[in-house]
Design a binder for these strands. Structure first.
Lengths: 225, 225
DNA sequence: ATTATATTTTAGTTTGGACTAAAAATTAAA
DNA sequence: TTTAATTTTTAGTCCAAACTAAAATATAAT
């Protein structure tokens, strides 16, 4: 059987795998908010179902079958997020939580209808790519805003959607995907950055800035962008 | 806690209460497709939570609190059904199953948005009334098509949405809510009825006809409607 | 290389919600 | 009014998925 819990594990594994390479028991425990021991037992089950491979004490890796399911759920999630925003005007800091539940119960048929209505979009409101039904994903590479040097410009590729409060903060500065940013200065010791967003100047803490991914990075001689 | 299972029980109890008066263990068992023993134990739990009252061997009755939850879920269900049809073109025989799952995970906020977008509708695609958020429902009274006598006319109030195949059959005859019907003849021993639907003549078995509720019944002298 | 710390796994419980089989209560039939 | 049939409840299991506490392994520090 394919329970909601299993889907959540596979999705979490996929995410961690992508952004940190290795998927440890602890990282899963933290991401899913369950005890490490619970993770271990679920891992065993998923391994039996051939959805992932693992060696004791050495982390897990999704199999083809496991990845297929993970991507299917992620696809649901992102299409739903975009649909909620576009069709129903749900603010971008709320779409995640709503999608988190709906993604497990939507039918493929309805998903197809939504996909069509949206015109087969390629990314969600936070800039993450929407996997195709066949399992292909185009991850465009980007680096955290905190890695830019003063004088560099770029555009927002995506932002983390894990915390509504953070999203609201980011949104207030206009830091949506595709927004042009320039780093004016960076304070040392993980201090705040001074940035320009489409001509407006802001100061943002590195804590928040690390959740904003930038692409298309260049040096700009001009004062503006 | 308020689990999906609990919500399903309360909804089922509300439905049965409305259309059969008494809610027995067996009727619930059948409607929910679970063993009678399972129903008994769930009833005990719901009783402890003060969502219903019951005396052993004598059926159950929702409390105010129980009814409130039931109506909330039914409201979700019906709004979702209508939304799926109107906004996404999901055919009317499929909206039920989709809503059956979504109804448990939709937020009140999103529901409000959907309600607004639909213009605060009062009934779903099958003719059932949509409860208000405060728990009021206007059930318009109607009788099964099988209870009409030859020569009587009326209009479709609602149809049962429990079986997609049945709905497709009914839909093919144009028997949507508000459609005008005239009973031309009825064969004895629960035989088929000959009816006119908006000028078209059909023969329908009583098995199917009993799931169609009619309102606004009159006698018509004319050949047509 | 040992010890200390951190991570992961085992072992054993708990909880929700289902199940079967058998007993008890109710209702219907002879 | 006894017997038979139906309905409902007990009693005891099972499974998924979480938990805690304690043991095992791996990694880091001295």
């Amino acid at each position: 059987m394919r329970t909601e819990s299993i889907e959540d594990y596979l999705k979490a594994i996929y995410d961690i795998q992508k952004e940190m390479g290795k998927v440890s028991t602890n990282s899963l425990s933290e991401k899913l908010n369950v005890a490490p021991a619970s993770v271990t037992s679920m891992i065993k089950k998923l391994s039996l179902k051939k959805l992932l491979t693992y060696k004791r004490y050495q982390g897990v890796k999704l199999t083809k079958a496991g990845q297929k399911i993970a991507l299917e759920i992620i696809r649901h999630h992102r299409l739903i997020e975009l649909y909620l925003q576009e069709a129903l005007g749900v603010p971008w800091d709320l779409v995640h939580d709503e999608a988190e539940k709906w993604e497990h119960v939507i039918s493929e048929d309805l998903e197809e209808r939504i996909d069509k209505k949206l015109g087969y979009p390629i990314s969600d409101p936070h800039g993450s790519p929407i996997p195709k039904r066949d399992g292909t994903v185009i991850e465009l590479d980007s680096i955290p805003l905190t890695d830019l040097k003063p004088g560099q410009t770029g555009e927002v590729a995506k932002v983390s959607d894990h915390d509504p409060k953070l999203l609201r903060y980011i949104g207030d500065m206009g830091l949506y995907p595709k927004a042009k940013v320039k780093v004016v200065s960076v304070e040392p010791f993980s201090g705040p950055l001074t940035i320009n967003v489409e001509k407006n100047k802001y100061i943002i803490g590195s804590e928040a800035a690390q959740y904003i991914s930038i692409t298309n990075i260049k040096f700009s001689k001009s004062e503006l962008i």
